[in-house]
């Protein structure tokens, strides 16, 4: 892709982000609830206290002025102070973002590792027992609520079998020197195999809970597109040439069949980044999803705004990445 085209794609981000800012800002402003009141709770508070907090939060200004201030500051990378942490929003978010990304990526790896082979086999051996099992399994995977499945896993592996921890990202006895923010990478970089393994044990249940749910969807997509690919002329031609079944499926059909899988995987990754607060809550995972949900309930406007902008940017970029992957998978596709 030419640099010009790349720049154009990136420039498209601007109206998207601007639109999202307006919508999120308006929605937060219209939602009833007063962060000052929420912060002070029931205990002693006089008007002076309310006023000083309101001023510290910047809520003493009219809403339109607040929006333009937010916009101006956001352009310089300043998203303001989180109302309740009383620290810069970006600091608070960046502390939690890597945990979410790490969990999402591992879950996605598990999902792909499970879904693609199963989907291909199910398509190739269509209507076999294996296909049926995979279909029923994926139905279960799609319809099973994550929090329920997660708690079942906790009860089995942590409470009854005592082989995996209930929650958290790494045991408190294990040191981590954060460099990248990704515990699995940081522990390896520090040469701490014990910490790495402990982090892996913590990762296992939440990643499997998330990954299996996603693999169900990916498997269905892979199976369908594989079936379609297998009915194409070029497959018949390849078979007529006398190529082995493995070569036909693995080399010719798979490449084309994967395009929808890649799209779905990229979009799902995007929605996982924003949408795994349930799993993060069940497993006490210190990610961004949980932070944002708490922020919404406590009307922590600056944090919600910044987080939504980050989600939106990631989502757009992941879609873009999926497009790029098309060109790799299928040179006929041009961006």
């Amino acid at each position: 892709m030419s640099p010009l085209r790349l720049a154009e794609r990136l420039l498209q981000l601007i109206p998207v982000l601007l639109g999202i800012s307006v919508i999120v800002f308006a929605m937060m402003a219209l939602t009833p609830g007063d962060p000052v009141q929420i912060m002070l709770g029931d205990s002693l508070a006089d008007q002076a206290q309310r006023d000083s907090l309101r001023r510290d939060m910047g809520l003493d200004l009219p809403v339109v002025e607040r929006f333009f201030r937010f916009l101006g500051n956001a352009l310089t990378g300043n998203f303001g102070l989180s109302f309740f942490h009383r620290r810069p929003v970006m600091d608070v978010i960046l502390e939690r973002l890597p945990a979410t990304i790490e969990l999402t990526l591992v879950a996605m790896l598990i999902a792909i590792a499970v879904a693609v082979p199963l989907g291909v086999i199910a398509a190739v051996k269509r209507n076999s027992l294996l296909d049926r099992i995979a279909t029923v399994g994926s139905m279960l995977g799609v319809s099973m609520p994550g929090f329920w499945f997660g708690i079942l896993l906790i009860l089995l592996f942590a409470v009854n079998l005592h082989i995996l921890p209930v929650s958290g990202r790494i045991g408190f006895g294990y040191e981590v020197k954060m460099a990248t923010g990704f515990v699995l990478i940081d522990t390896l970089m520090a040469g701490r195999l014990d910490s790495f393994l402990d982090a892996l044990r913590h990762m296992l249940l939440p990643a499997v809970t998330l990954g299996l749910a996603m693999s169900a969807l990916l498997m269905r997509v892979t199976r369908t597109s594989m079936l379609e690919a297998l009915s194409q002329d070029y497959v018949t031609f390849a078979e007529a040439k006398g190529l082995s079944r493995l070569r036909v499926v693995g080399r010719h059909a798979l490449k084309n069949a994967l395009i929808p899988t890649v799209t779905v995987a990229a979009i799902e990754t995007g929605s996982l980044l924003g949408g795994n607060m349930i799993i993060e809550t069940v497993f006490g995972w210190p990610g961004l999803g949980r932070l944002v949900v708490e922020a919404i309930f406590s009307r922590n406007y600056p944090l919600v705004q910044a987080a939504v902008l980050i989600y939106a940017t990631t989502y757009v970029l992941l879609n873009f990445l999926a497009d790029l992957l098309y060109t790799v998978l299928n040179p006929k596709v041009r961006l």
Binding site: I151, I154, L155
Partner: peptide, 10 residues
């Protein structure tokens, strides 16, 4: 920090 009560009990 274990926000979910079922996980806390677990």
């Amino acid at each position: 920090v274990i926000p979910e009560s079922a996980s806390r009990v677990a």
